[in-house]
Design a protein around this nucleic acid. Structure first.
Lengths: 140, 140
DNA sequence: AAAAAGCCGAGTAATTTTATCGGGATTTGG
DNA sequence: CCAAATCCCGATAAAATTACTCGGCTTTTT
């Protein structure tokens, strides 16, 4: 029941872009160095994020990536959906998908996964990147 | 962000044991046939569930498996923890584990995963097998 | 004794995820 | 105009995980 490394690192990278939001585009190499991640792996992640419209890119020297919207307007859930696909504990309860398996009535367990999915989306969609950078580390 | 096939099928199988709770031990072959699953794969699942004390087994002819406790007293979360390990969206926030990565302060994203983990556990631990077999399919 | 079950370690296959490669395309600064 | 910095991107290799199988053993009932 894990988020993928793509998802985890994507959220971290987005957090950095949120921190640097006012400073203009940040080059990938910097992020990679800062988080100790493979440049090329991050590249893949950013490709997806850009295509999904969550970040913008500037090519060439002095280029880099920046959030497409302010940190307050980007939810963690959005990032995760782009990188890991729909938030769904089992295939047959993909978001917006209420009957993929064709044996709804027979499937007593379905309700579990729907409830789980809904609560997962709920948490992830109520946290924005602004929350992430403003929350003190030990607010548990 | 998926539960494994082991987890999904394990919950299904446990649901059947819940339905048959008053009828005595159910043989694996029956469950496998009923759910269209591989007998041998189910065997592995049941081995884990039994070792974890969630089910009991009776060997020999007329044998089979049964819930170790009544359906009201077995939470879906317990089943899932046995089969899929601790409920934790990323490794560093394993349940009961508050500092594995050693860079807590630096890790702004950690709070996300903790909140997610807590809500996931919450849902899964508030649903018992009795709920699963008593909830009408379309209570959405 | 034979059939019906569960027990179990070890091993293979399939799938998914992670990561790398190699070469392009743009932009800036000298 | 050239060189360096940077993003673009399809393809593919490597690694990890997960799913599943095998084979043989033990226990209980009839």
């Amino acid at each position: 029941m894990r988020v993928s490394a793509k998802g985890e690192n994507g959220v971290r990278a987005m957090t950095i872009l949120a921190l640097e939001f006012r400073a203009g585009p940040v080059p990938l190499r910097e992020i990679a160095a800062r988080e100790g991640l493979s440049y090329q792996f991050l590249e893949q992640i950013f490709l997806l994020l850009r295509r999904a419209g969550l970040i913008t890119s500037v090519r060439g020297a002095k280029g880099g990536y920046a959030l497409a919207r302010p940190p307050e307007e980007i939810k963690v859930g959005e990032v995760l959906r782009v990188l890991d696909g729909p938030i769904a504990p089992v295939e047959c309860v993909g978001e917006g998908n209420s009957d993929a398996c064709g044996r709804i009535a027979a499937c007593l367990t379905r309700g579990i996964w729907e409830r789980l999915r809904d609560r997962m989306s709920e948490v992830l969609d109520e946290i924005t990147l602004a929350d992430v950078i403003n929350t003190p580390a030990d607010s548990t």
